[in-house]
């Protein structure tokens, strides 16, 4: 292997050590070396958002990040988010609202929406659209995706309020 790089990175909570070529993109490393094929590849130049993953808690393009740049970082993919159960409500909302058809864009959408719901828990429809503007979907026409994310935001806010009320009553 030319110019081999010894990569140590945490992926979905597990330590990974692998030798990679510097030119290997993070998305190819995840899919080909680790078998994490949940994240997809579309355009390979930053335009479609299918490859969106989290690096140190922030969304990035997997096709515009070199695997070796994540040395020492924490990477999370749709597989990790799914296993943690943290986005189960979002996934249910996508299902219920018909926010996916072929599903190609969905992993990127879910990861992007995860960041949005953390950064702007009370996002309006307009803000949701703006935040998702870098994630293309060729099937749904977006309306249902915005519905699903808005529903999740509202349910989470209501859930928090309920928890706060219950705590106040218990005290």
């Amino acid at each position: 292997m030319e110019n081999a790089f010894q990569l140590a990175v945490k992926v979905n909570g597990a330590d990974v050590a692998k030798t990679v070529e510097p030119r290997t993109h993070l998305i190819d490393f995840l899919r080909n070396d680790l078998g994490l094929t949940g994240s997809h590849i579309g355009c390979e130049h930053g335009v479609c958002g299918a490859c969106t993953v989290l690096v140190n808690g922030e969304i990035v393009r997997g096709c515009l990040t070199l695997a070796c740049q994540t040395h020492g970082a924490e990477v999370e993919t749709v597989e990790g988010l799914t296993e943690s159960g943290l986005i189960a409500d979002l996934q249910t909302a996508f299902h219920q609202r018909n926010a996916l058809q072929c599903g190609y864009c969905t992993p990127g959408m879910l990861v992007c929406a995860t960041a949005l719901l953390t950064e702007k828990p009370h996002a309006t429809r307009e803000e949701i659209r703006e935040y998702l503007s870098g994630n293309f979907c060729r099937c749904t026409g977006y309306e249902a995706i915005v519905d699903a994310i808005e529903t999740t935001a509202k349910n989470r806010a209501a859930g928090k309020q309920l928890a706060a009320t219950n705590n106040a009553e218990a005290a």
């Binding site: 930053g46 969106t52 949005l116 503007s133």
Partner: peptide, 9 residues
């Protein structure tokens, strides 16, 4: 400038 994921880097 671009989209949130690109602005993060």
């Amino acid at each position: 400038i671009a989209h949130p994921a690109i602005r993060n880097r």
